[in-house]
């Protein structure tokens, strides 16, 4: 049994936090999976995005899908939040160094008249229970976006980011499976939301971030005990490696 919630700084037991994600992403209570999330590591990620990516995010230069995967990593990672905060402070200093541009006359008066306007409700159908940045993309109820089966134990849910070469999708892969061996034409960013996988660089569990490019060929192996749900961002289609890769159709859709 998890310990009392009072033992955790924000009142949320990390195991419970994992359990909630389990319930939502794989439709099962954590005790229905053989190895419940109680056994995940202390909750803090061990694999982080590079500083250059965090800089893109902090300065507002990351593509939407990239900003999304980084924002979700930040939910799980106080260390990278501190890094982004430092970069945002630096950006703010750069702004303060600019010669100021006086606002047009009456700009303040016009704004004061708007202060009592009711606020438009911008996010009508955010799904509950996901990390907030992801929830906004999933919709809920009737508008929940569907999973699509790709075969070989792989399911995919494409997220509605603005049209761009860079796309974001959730991938759910059954326990014990191995992703087809592949390399990358562009960049592949992966963030684990539930479960875990391993490749030659290590084991990746909730909150862990991996970046791969054309120099890396890998065949991630999903942990034996539960499905692995991850957010994947691609800026070019994957390239399958080896003879087996070429005959695996579904994967080409990624």
């Amino acid at each position: 049994m998890p310990e009392s919630r009072e033992n955790f700084p924000d009142g949320i037991d990390p195991a419970w936090r994992g359990a909630r994600i389990s319930r939502i992403l794989i439709g099962k209570e954590p005790w229905e999976t053989r190895r419940s999330t109680v056994h995940t590591k202390s909750g803090l990620p061990e694999h982080h995005p590079e500083e250059a990516l965090l800089l893109d995010y902090a300065f507002g230069n990351a593509a939407e899908a990239v900003a999304l995967i980084l924002a979700i990593h930040l939910v799980f990672c106080p260390r990278c939040r501190a890094t982004v905060a430092a970069m945002e402070s630096a950006a703010s200093r750069l702004v303060e160094g600019l010669p100021s541009r006086p606002m047009r006359e009456a700009a303040l008066d016009r704004l004061l008249l708007r202060l009592d306007e009711p606020e438009a409700v911008a996010e009508p159908d955010a799904a509950l229970g996901y990390p907030a940045p992801l929830a906004a993309y999933l919709g809920s109820g009737e508008q929940a976006r569907p999973w699509r089966k790709l075969g070989r134990g792989i399911e995919q849910l494409v997220l509605p980011t603005a049209p761009s070469a860079t796309r974001a999708m959730l991938l759910r892969v059954a326990a014990g499976r191995r992703m087809p061996k592949h390399t990358h034409r562009g960049n592949e960013l992966t963030l684990v939301l539930q479960g875990d996988y391993s490749d030659q660089y290590g084991r990746y569990a909730q909150g862990d971030f991996e970046a791969a490019d054309g120099s890396l060929t890998h065949s991630p192996a999903i942990g034996k005990d539960e499905p692995c749900v991850s957010l994947v961002v691609l800026d070019a289609p994957l390239r399958l490696a080896g003879a087996l890769g070429r005959i695996i159709n579904p994967f080409v859709q990624l």
């Binding site: 507002g60 593509a63 990390p131 993309y137 980011t161 603005a162 761009s164």
Partner: peptide, 12 residues
């Protein structure tokens, strides 16, 4: 584009 942003009050 939307700007995904983590929420400091996110229960997760």
């Amino acid at each position: 584009e939307r700007r995904p942003e983590f929420d400091p009050h996110d229960p997760m």
